[in-house]
Design a protein around this nucleic acid. Structure first.
Lengths: 213, 213
DNA sequence: GTCTATAAATGGATAGAC
DNA sequence: GTCTATCCATTTATAGAC
């Protein structure tokens, strides 16, 4: 099997260290040390820490963009929606270092700011598309403005839920936190179910069935 | 009039700089430079940047704690609740640097972690107390678990809304962002109004009347 | 591609004079 | 209380050998 490229090893290790300790706390020397390569070698592959961050963001952007685009292009099956939300949470969790110290990172890598803003908007559009399709199929009913507001709140929830939970009680596993995050979104949609409790109860059952794999 | 103490000037300037540029981007040398005092002088008053951060947090904690405790001790008048939410947002906005790079700050000032977690819990308890009093007065109706879930989401919303908006579109005034944040909370509570749209419409009108001072 | 060695810059921190 | 001067540690970044 082919040897893993040093460039990729740098990215992988940097991501792990950033997620663990926070990007600001990790120096290029430390990254090189963990990889057992010289700082000079690291600088041969990346001009500096900023370059590493930008490269990691490109990965994140690519993956999240793919995930978020799917439901816009073609409506999901009704109970696939919860799985979808779950996947978004996992993707964000994999690159969570980015959400800590966002101000600092965007300050030092200004080119990422518009790209990050675009991802947020895409989250919101996707949420809106999903709600829309559920509305058209008769599951949900919205008054004027309610759907847009809900979509915005869901986008914010997707973005910051993991951080909120990490602050409230830092000792929980990622799986549990994500499950609670998905559940909270379901609770937030529940009031808009057309036929009240019945349809919601069904979805709830399907969700717990699907996630106990 | 008495001359403003250097200690207080340091705190005030540090807060301003931290909010503007992010705590990680501001050095003690820079703070001293802006204040036109020597680094040595700064170190006479504070052992280092951590000490400044801890002192600023103490201010924040004190103020927010007072604000959040009021509705728990005694229910507010029905339309004071929106004003209350507004005040919480403003308080958070004044110390927003803290919410950027939270990971980094809590890493370096571990004693703040439990205190910060306690503030989050207090936010949630306060939201719950307000919802509870509205429920008892007959304005709101909750099924089992709905009130707790809503309170948690409101706490998260209070904590991260400003950051979310700053990322989505960074060029808006704090006032507008806060108004939208309050409105989003109202929208989130709306589905639980007992008599549907009427009571909510009234509150909406009162809110816009009260905030156009 | 990778290493060693080292430069250059920055930021944190202290001693001692005023 | 405040300043000057200085030191130490860390980090980024580069030059040149292998």
């Amino acid at each position: 099997m082919a040897k893993v490229k040093t460039r990729d090893r740098i990215l992988k290790t940097s991501l792990a260290l950033f997620n663990q300790e926070g990007e600001a706390q990790v120096s290029t020397v430390e990254i090189a040390g963990v990889l057992d390569i010289s700082p000079g070698n690291l600088y041969y592959h990346f001009k500096g820490k900023e370059a590493i961050i930008v490269a990691l963001f490109a990965e994140f952007e690519e993956e999240l963009r793919q995930v978020l685009s799917a439901p816009i292009q073609r409506p999901l099956q009704i109970d696939d929606n919860w799985v979808f939300v779950y996947i978004v949470f996992e993707e964000i969790n994999d690159f969570r270092f980015f959400y800590y110290n966002l101000t600092g990172i965007l300050e030092r890598c200004p080119e990422l700011r518009p790209r990050f803003a675009r991802l947020l908007r895409l989250k919101e559009e996707t949420a809106n598309a999903i709600l829309s399709s559920l509305e058209q199929e008769g599951y949900l009913t919205f008054a004027a403005g309610e759907r847009d507001g809900l979509a915005a709140r869901i986008a914010a929830h997707l973005t910051f839920w993991l951080q909120f939970e990490a602050l409230r009680q830092g000792d929980r596993g990622a799986r549990d936190v994500i499950n609670d995050g998905v559940y909270a979104i379901m609770m937030q949609i529940a009031p808009y179910f057309t036929d009240g409790k019945t349809a919601f109860a069904e979805l709830l059952r399907d969700y717990f069935a699907s996630q106990s794999r």
